[in-house]
Design a protein around this nucleic acid. Structure first.
Lengths: 180, 180
DNA sequence: TTTTCCATGTAACTCGTTACATGATTTC
DNA sequence: GAAATCATGTAACGAGTTACATGGAAAA
């Protein structure tokens, strides 16, 4: 559903072909999604079959021919509905990275700290990259801001976790709760 | 891989059967993962086939028989390795909820604000629930803290986004950048 | 007495990825 | 001359979900 919204939103903005669409996503929207090329092609075809888009072949010079996609009026309707639902809806984020944390008491606290510091280093690097990103036009800037804000918050929290383990190095490990 | 770590971590803690494992995850680990029951059964069988665990049937009273799983020494080794990798590694979070934001200029700013306020209401409710959660033992408390910290940060950011749209109600919409 | 809980499992299906194939063209 | 870029696509595979099947026991 998000992927449908994404593709419709892009071809709505301007006529685009598959390769170009995938490029754009990789360049500007990595923080939102991870759409592989074959999947993009497949979904674009699906849009056509559902009547949300049309496509026609075009060629430029000696380049390989392109399938250029365009949104239909029905597609525009559908896009707006998807957009409204999507903006109003909140999806719970899953922190898969916390699974390890739940079992951290299986290792000596000192080692846990070392490992978490490695994680922190990667996150700091990501934050530096995100902060260094050049200013984008309009809505895209929001995404960059979101990314940096999130990384900053995560780093603060990770710091707290590290101190948590640091302050109980000497204590016995506190296990997960038993089932009642 | 996270799922493998999760299941190994649980049966390592104490002998458990599938139904019970799924229950535990639903109760305490919803913020980390969303493991369906059939998937849990399937993965537990896989652990046995790979030699990380053993299982044997037990029954209690007139209850249906249970498949109780136990970690093997090889499984313990494997678990520790997975845990180390997992703790040290940082996975980039994808903000699928930002896709809509990227195209928000397709709707009047006033409507965007209304929709985002709906999203905010859901998030606030989630924060209230998370904050109200009873104190857990040890590592599990970390997960709850993470969840609340994250929601607080996300709410702050959403607030900024809403003011962003509020301050440019009169301005012309700023589109996404064109491809060079 | 009907529904919910306990406990496991299978079978069909969907979605997405990886790997592969093609072929011209530009860059190193 | 080799490698990367442009451009599309297929085919095989894998992971995970949904829906279904079973059957006794407890609760409503």
């Amino acid at each position: 559903m998000e992927r449908e919204l994404l593709l419709l939103g892009l071809i709505r903005r301007s006529r685009m072909y598959g390769y170009q669409i995938h490029d754009f996503i990789e360049r500007y929207l990595v923080t939102c999604t991870d759409l592989k090329r074959p999947t993009a092609y497949f979904l674009l075809d699906k849009l056509v079959k559902q009547g949300w888009a049309t496509h026609n072949e075009e060629r430029e010079g000696s380049r390989p021919p392109r399938q250029v996609y365009q949104i239909t009026p029905a597609g525009e309707q559908h896009f707006q509905q998807l957009l409204r639902e999507h903006l109003a809806h909140y999806t719970q984020t899953r922190f898969t990275s916390d699974i390890g944390l739940a079992f951290a008491d299986a290792l000596p606290a000192a080692e846990v700290i070392t490992l978490l510091e490695q994680r922190r280093a990667t996150m700091r690097a990501a934050l530096t990259t995100a902060s260094a990103a050049p200013a984008h036009a309009g809505t895209l800037q929001l995404l960059v801001d979101h990314h940096t804000a999130h990384l900053e918050a995560e780093l603060l929290w990770l710091e707290r976790v590290i101190t948590h383990f640091a302050t109980q190095t000497a204590d016995p490990p506190t296990p997960l709760p038993r089932q009642e």
